[in-house]
Design a protein around this nucleic acid. Sequence first.
DNA 1: ACTGAAAATAAATCGCA
DNA 2: TGCGATTTATTTTCAGT
Lengths: 152, 152
Amino acid sequence: MKLDKIDIKILNHLASDGRIGWRELADKVGLTLTPTLRRVRLLEERGYIQGYFARLDEARLAGELVVFVSVSMDKQEQEVLVNFEQRIAQVPEVMSCFLMTGDADYLLRVVVKDLHTYQSFLANTLTRIPGIAHIKSSFALKSVLSRTAPPL
Amino acid sequence: MKLDKIDIKILNHLASDGRIGWRELADKVGLTLTPTLRRVRLLEERGYIQGYFARLDEARLAGELVVFVSVSMDKQEQEVLVNFEQRIAQVPEVMSCFLMTGDADYLLRVVVKDLHTYQSFLANTLTRIPGIAHIKSSFALKSVLSRTAPPL
DNA sequence: ACTGAAAATAAATCGCA
DNA sequence: TGCGATTTATTTTCAGT
Protein backbone atom coordinates (compact mmCIF):
# COMPACT_ATOMS: atom_id res chain seq x y z
CA MET A 1 0.00 0.00 0.00
CA LYS A 2 1.31 3.41 -0.86
CA LEU A 3 0.07 6.55 0.83
CA ASP A 4 -0.87 9.61 -1.18
CA LYS A 5 -1.03 13.26 -0.13
CA ILE A 6 -4.55 12.88 1.21
CA ASP A 7 -3.64 9.90 3.37
CA ILE A 8 -0.79 11.90 4.85
CA LYS A 9 -3.16 14.80 5.53
CA ILE A 10 -5.58 12.43 7.22
CA LEU A 11 -2.81 11.00 9.41
CA ASN A 12 -1.61 14.47 10.35
CA HIS A 13 -5.06 15.63 11.36
CA LEU A 14 -5.84 12.50 13.36
CA ALA A 15 -2.45 12.67 15.07
CA SER A 16 -3.18 16.15 16.35
CA ASP A 17 -6.90 15.67 17.01
CA GLY A 18 -7.95 12.08 17.52
CA ARG A 19 -11.58 12.98 18.12
CA ILE A 20 -12.11 15.12 15.04
CA GLY A 21 -15.43 14.47 13.34
CA TRP A 22 -15.37 12.60 10.03
CA ARG A 23 -17.22 15.42 8.32
CA GLU A 24 -14.76 18.02 9.56
CA LEU A 25 -11.87 15.75 8.61
CA ALA A 26 -13.36 15.27 5.15
CA ASP A 27 -13.61 19.04 4.71
CA LYS A 28 -10.02 19.56 5.79
CA VAL A 29 -8.59 17.00 3.40
CA GLY A 30 -10.83 18.04 0.52
CA LEU A 31 -12.98 14.95 0.13
CA THR A 32 -16.49 13.99 1.06
CA LEU A 33 -17.45 11.79 3.94
CA THR A 34 -17.51 8.37 2.34
CA PRO A 35 -14.04 8.15 0.83
CA THR A 36 -12.52 9.83 3.86
CA LEU A 37 -13.97 7.24 6.18
CA ARG A 38 -12.90 4.43 3.86
CA ARG A 39 -9.34 5.74 3.87
CA VAL A 40 -9.31 6.02 7.66
CA ARG A 41 -10.53 2.44 8.05
CA LEU A 42 -7.87 1.25 5.65
CA LEU A 43 -5.15 3.15 7.51
CA GLU A 44 -6.39 1.55 10.72
CA GLU A 45 -6.47 -1.96 9.23
CA ARG A 46 -3.00 -1.65 7.76
CA GLY A 47 -1.65 -0.50 11.11
CA TYR A 48 -0.61 3.00 10.13
CA ILE A 49 -3.04 4.15 12.80
CA GLN A 50 -2.45 2.04 15.89
CA GLY A 51 -5.24 3.44 17.99
CA TYR A 52 -6.72 6.53 19.60
CA PHE A 53 -5.79 7.77 23.03
CA ALA A 54 -6.51 10.56 25.44
CA ARG A 55 -3.31 12.14 26.66
CA LEU A 56 -3.35 12.59 30.40
CA ASP A 57 -1.38 14.98 32.59
CA GLU A 58 1.31 12.54 33.62
CA ALA A 59 2.89 14.76 36.27
CA ARG A 60 -0.37 15.58 38.01
CA LEU A 61 -1.83 12.09 37.87
CA ALA A 62 1.19 9.84 38.28
CA GLY A 63 4.17 11.78 39.55
CA GLU A 64 6.40 14.80 39.12
CA LEU A 65 9.63 12.86 39.00
CA VAL A 66 10.83 11.56 35.63
CA VAL A 67 13.89 9.32 35.76
CA PHE A 68 15.82 7.80 32.89
CA VAL A 69 17.34 4.57 34.09
CA SER A 70 20.21 2.87 32.30
CA VAL A 71 20.37 -0.81 33.12
CA SER A 72 23.34 -3.04 32.29
CA MET A 73 22.96 -6.78 32.42
CA ASP A 74 25.45 -9.37 33.65
CA LYS A 75 25.29 -11.42 30.49
CA GLN A 76 23.66 -10.94 27.11
CA GLU A 77 21.92 -14.33 27.26
CA GLN A 78 18.51 -14.47 25.65
CA GLU A 79 16.95 -16.02 28.70
CA VAL A 80 18.10 -13.23 30.99
CA LEU A 81 17.02 -10.52 28.59
CA VAL A 82 13.61 -12.00 27.88
CA ASN A 83 13.01 -12.42 31.57
CA PHE A 84 13.98 -8.81 32.24
CA GLU A 85 11.64 -7.58 29.54
CA GLN A 86 8.74 -9.60 30.85
CA ARG A 87 9.26 -8.41 34.40
CA ILE A 88 9.69 -4.78 33.45
CA ALA A 89 6.53 -4.79 31.34
CA GLN A 90 4.53 -5.46 34.48
CA VAL A 91 5.90 -2.52 36.42
CA PRO A 92 3.44 0.36 36.21
CA GLU A 93 6.03 3.08 36.87
CA VAL A 94 7.94 2.16 33.72
CA MET A 95 6.57 4.26 30.89
CA SER A 96 8.94 3.07 28.20
CA CYS A 97 11.84 0.69 27.75
CA PHE A 98 14.32 0.34 24.90
CA LEU A 99 16.97 -2.28 24.29
CA MET A 100 20.11 -0.32 23.51
CA THR A 101 23.51 -0.57 21.91
CA GLY A 102 26.54 0.60 23.88
CA ASP A 103 27.45 0.09 27.53
CA ALA A 104 23.96 0.03 28.96
CA ASP A 105 21.58 -2.66 27.80
CA TYR A 106 18.25 -1.03 28.57
CA LEU A 107 17.05 2.52 28.86
CA LEU A 108 13.87 3.02 30.87
CA ARG A 109 11.75 6.08 31.44
CA VAL A 110 10.21 5.87 34.89
CA VAL A 111 7.59 8.18 36.37
CA VAL A 112 7.18 8.36 40.14
CA LYS A 113 5.76 10.73 42.72
CA ASP A 114 8.99 11.61 44.50
CA LEU A 115 12.49 10.49 45.38
CA HIS A 116 11.26 8.27 48.17
CA THR A 117 9.00 6.40 45.78
CA TYR A 118 11.86 6.10 43.35
CA GLN A 119 14.12 4.67 46.00
CA SER A 120 11.49 2.08 46.79
CA PHE A 121 11.08 1.32 43.07
CA LEU A 122 14.83 0.65 42.90
CA ALA A 123 14.99 -1.40 46.07
CA ASN A 124 11.80 -3.41 45.76
CA THR A 125 11.29 -3.78 42.05
CA LEU A 126 14.19 -3.08 39.73
CA THR A 127 17.10 -4.57 41.70
CA ARG A 128 15.05 -7.70 42.35
CA ILE A 129 15.09 -8.63 38.68
CA PRO A 130 17.85 -11.22 38.13
CA GLY A 131 20.84 -10.54 35.93
CA ILE A 132 21.24 -6.82 36.50
CA ALA A 133 24.89 -5.74 36.79
CA HIS A 134 24.59 -2.00 37.07
CA ILE A 135 22.00 0.76 37.25
CA LYS A 136 22.45 4.45 36.51
CA SER A 137 19.71 6.97 37.21
CA SER A 138 19.42 10.33 35.46
CA PHE A 139 16.79 12.75 36.65
CA ALA A 140 14.82 15.10 34.45
CA LEU A 141 14.59 18.69 35.60
CA LYS A 142 11.89 19.54 33.11
CA SER A 143 10.28 18.34 29.94
CA VAL A 144 11.26 20.65 27.10
CA LEU A 145 9.40 19.01 24.25
CA SER A 146 7.15 16.02 23.75
CA ARG A 147 5.61 15.10 20.42
CA THR A 148 2.78 12.62 20.11
CA ALA A 149 3.47 11.81 16.49
CA PRO A 150 6.37 11.98 14.09
CA PRO A 151 6.29 14.53 11.28
CA LEU A 152 5.15 13.12 7.95
CA MET B 1 -10.54 19.57 42.48
CA LYS B 2 -10.31 16.06 43.76
CA LEU B 3 -10.92 13.04 41.57
CA ASP B 4 -13.14 10.22 42.69
CA LYS B 5 -13.24 6.58 41.60
CA ILE B 6 -15.46 7.37 38.62
CA ASP B 7 -13.16 10.10 37.34
CA ILE B 8 -10.25 7.68 37.50
CA LYS B 9 -12.29 5.11 35.58
CA ILE B 10 -13.13 7.69 32.95
CA LEU B 11 -9.48 8.66 32.58
CA ASN B 12 -8.42 5.03 32.29
CA HIS B 13 -10.96 4.28 29.61
CA LEU B 14 -10.17 7.40 27.59
CA ALA B 15 -6.45 6.75 27.87
CA SER B 16 -6.85 3.35 26.27
CA ASP B 17 -9.60 4.29 23.80
CA GLY B 18 -9.76 7.95 22.94
CA ARG B 19 -12.63 7.50 20.51
CA ILE B 20 -14.98 5.59 22.77
CA GLY B 21 -18.58 6.79 22.53
CA TRP B 22 -19.92 8.77 25.46
CA ARG B 23 -22.79 6.37 25.92
CA GLU B 24 -20.49 3.36 26.00
CA LEU B 25 -18.19 5.20 28.38
CA ALA B 26 -21.15 6.05 30.59
CA ASP B 27 -22.14 2.36 30.70
CA LYS B 28 -18.62 1.29 31.62
CA VAL B 29 -18.30 3.73 34.49
CA GLY B 30 -21.83 3.15 35.75
CA LEU B 31 -23.43 6.51 35.08
CA THR B 32 -25.74 7.92 32.45
CA LEU B 33 -24.70 10.11 29.57
CA THR B 34 -25.16 13.55 31.08
CA PRO B 35 -23.03 13.29 34.23
CA THR B 36 -20.39 11.32 32.33
CA LEU B 37 -20.08 13.98 29.68
CA ARG B 38 -20.02 16.69 32.31
CA ARG B 39 -17.17 14.94 34.12
CA VAL B 40 -15.21 14.52 30.87
CA ARG B 41 -15.58 18.21 30.02
CA LEU B 42 -14.43 19.13 33.51
CA LEU B 43 -11.41 16.83 33.26
CA GLU B 44 -10.60 18.46 29.92
CA GLU B 45 -10.98 21.99 31.28
CA ARG B 46 -8.86 21.30 34.33
CA GLY B 47 -6.13 19.86 32.14
CA TYR B 48 -6.22 16.29 33.39
CA ILE B 49 -7.04 15.35 29.80
CA GLN B 50 -4.65 17.23 27.55
CA GLY B 51 -6.12 16.14 24.26
CA TYR B 52 -6.98 13.22 22.02
CA PHE B 53 -4.56 11.78 19.51
CA ALA B 54 -4.24 9.01 16.99
CA ARG B 55 -1.13 6.98 17.56
CA LEU B 56 0.74 6.40 14.32
CA ASP B 57 3.24 3.71 13.40
CA GLU B 58 6.35 5.76 14.01
CA ALA B 59 8.79 3.28 12.49
CA ARG B 60 6.84 2.80 9.26
CA LEU B 61 5.95 6.45 8.75
CA ALA B 62 8.99 8.32 10.05
CA GLY B 63 11.93 5.97 10.48
CA GLU B 64 13.26 2.75 11.90
CA LEU B 65 16.15 4.33 13.73
CA VAL B 66 15.59 5.59 17.28
CA VAL B 67 18.50 7.47 18.84
CA PHE B 68 18.84 8.83 22.34
CA VAL B 69 21.12 11.83 22.19
CA SER B 70 22.83 13.26 25.27
CA VAL B 71 23.81 16.86 24.77
CA SER B 72 26.15 18.77 27.08
CA MET B 73 26.32 22.53 26.89
CA ASP B 74 29.38 24.77 27.23
CA LYS B 75 27.85 26.90 29.92
CA GLN B 76 24.66 26.74 31.93
CA GLU B 77 23.66 30.29 31.03
CA GLN B 78 19.95 30.88 30.66
CA GLU B 79 20.37 32.51 27.28
CA VAL B 80 22.21 29.53 25.82
CA LEU B 81 19.74 27.03 27.23
CA VAL B 82 16.64 28.92 26.12
CA ASN B 83 18.10 29.28 22.65
CA PHE B 84 18.85 25.57 22.47
CA GLU B 85 15.33 24.70 23.54
CA GLN B 86 13.78 27.00 20.98
CA ARG B 87 15.91 25.64 18.17
CA ILE B 88 15.37 22.02 19.10
CA ALA B 89 11.62 22.47 19.27
CA GLN B 90 11.60 23.24 15.57
CA VAL B 91 13.44 20.11 14.52
CA PRO B 92 10.93 17.53 13.32
CA GLU B 93 13.14 14.51 14.02
CA VAL B 94 13.24 15.31 17.72
CA MET B 95 10.37 13.48 19.35
CA SER B 96 11.12 14.47 22.93
CA CYS B 97 13.61 16.51 24.89
CA PHE B 98 14.28 16.67 28.62
CA LEU B 99 16.50 19.00 30.60
CA MET B 100 18.53 16.70 32.84
CA THR B 101 20.62 16.63 35.99
CA GLY B 102 24.08 15.08 35.83
CA ASP B 103 26.81 15.37 33.22
CA ALA B 104 24.60 15.77 30.17
CA ASP B 105 22.28 18.73 30.00
CA TYR B 106 19.67 17.47 27.57
CA LEU B 107 18.41 14.06 26.58
CA LEU B 108 16.68 13.86 23.20
CA ARG B 109 14.83 11.06 21.51
CA VAL B 110 15.32 11.32 17.78
CA VAL B 111 13.61 9.28 15.08
CA VAL B 112 15.19 9.04 11.64
CA LYS B 113 15.06 6.77 8.62
CA ASP B 114 18.62 5.46 8.75
CA LEU B 115 22.18 6.15 9.84
CA HIS B 116 22.82 8.40 6.89
CA THR B 117 19.88 10.60 7.82
CA TYR B 118 21.09 10.64 11.39
CA GLN B 119 24.53 11.73 10.33
CA SER B 120 23.01 14.57 8.37
CA PHE B 121 20.83 15.49 11.38
CA LEU B 122 23.99 15.74 13.49
CA ALA B 123 26.01 17.67 10.93
CA ASN B 124 23.36 20.04 9.61
CA THR B 125 21.06 20.56 12.54
CA LEU B 126 22.25 19.61 15.98
CA THR B 127 25.88 20.71 15.86
CA ARG B 128 24.85 24.03 14.34
CA ILE B 129 23.10 25.07 17.52
CA PRO B 130 25.46 27.34 19.50
CA GLY B 131 26.78 26.39 22.91
CA ILE B 132 26.99 22.62 22.52
CA ALA B 133 30.10 21.14 24.12
CA HIS B 134 29.56 17.43 23.62
CA ILE B 135 27.14 14.99 22.02
CA LYS B 136 26.73 11.31 22.78
CA SER B 137 24.48 9.07 20.68
CA SER B 138 22.94 5.83 21.91
CA PHE B 139 21.03 3.69 19.46
CA ALA B 140 17.97 1.65 20.25
CA LEU B 141 17.95 -1.92 19.03
CA LYS B 142 14.29 -2.37 19.74
CA SER B 143 11.40 -0.90 21.64
CA VAL B 144 10.50 -3.22 24.51
CA LEU B 145 7.64 -1.27 26.03
CA SER B 146 5.81 1.97 25.37
CA ARG B 147 2.88 3.17 27.46
CA THR B 148 0.62 5.97 26.34
CA ALA B 149 -0.56 6.82 29.82
CA PRO B 150 0.59 6.34 33.38
CA PRO B 151 -1.29 3.91 35.59
CA LEU B 152 -3.78 5.61 37.90
C1' DA C 1 -13.17 5.99 -6.73
C1' DC C 2 -15.95 9.88 -5.41
C1' DT C 3 -20.66 12.07 -4.73
C1' DG C 4 -24.92 13.12 -2.38
C1' DA C 5 -28.93 11.99 0.02
C1' DA C 6 -31.47 8.91 3.27
C1' DA C 7 -31.47 6.11 7.35
C1' DA C 8 -29.50 4.97 11.72
C1' DT C 9 -26.69 6.49 15.82
C1' DA C 10 -24.73 9.33 18.76
C1' DA C 11 -23.96 13.73 21.18
C1' DA C 12 -25.48 17.99 23.42
C1' DT C 13 -29.08 20.42 25.86
C1' DC C 14 -32.63 21.15 29.22
C1' DG C 15 -35.97 20.71 32.88
C1' DC C 16 -36.42 18.04 37.03
C1' DA C 17 -35.35 15.08 41.21
C1' DT D 1 -24.77 15.48 41.18
C1' DG D 2 -27.35 12.54 38.64
C1' DC D 3 -31.46 11.18 35.60
C1' DG D 4 -34.41 10.90 31.31
C1' DA D 5 -36.44 12.97 27.38
C1' DT D 6 -35.93 16.11 23.47
C1' DT D 7 -33.37 18.46 20.04
C1' DT D 8 -29.44 18.67 17.24
C1' DA D 9 -25.53 16.82 14.93
C1' DT D 10 -22.83 13.10 13.24
C1' DT D 11 -22.00 8.60 11.30
C1' DT D 12 -23.11 5.00 8.30
C1' DT D 13 -25.11 3.02 4.36
C1' DC D 14 -26.56 2.84 -0.35
C1' DA D 15 -27.96 3.89 -5.11
C1' DG D 16 -25.94 6.63 -8.79
C1' DT D 17 -22.02 8.71 -11.74
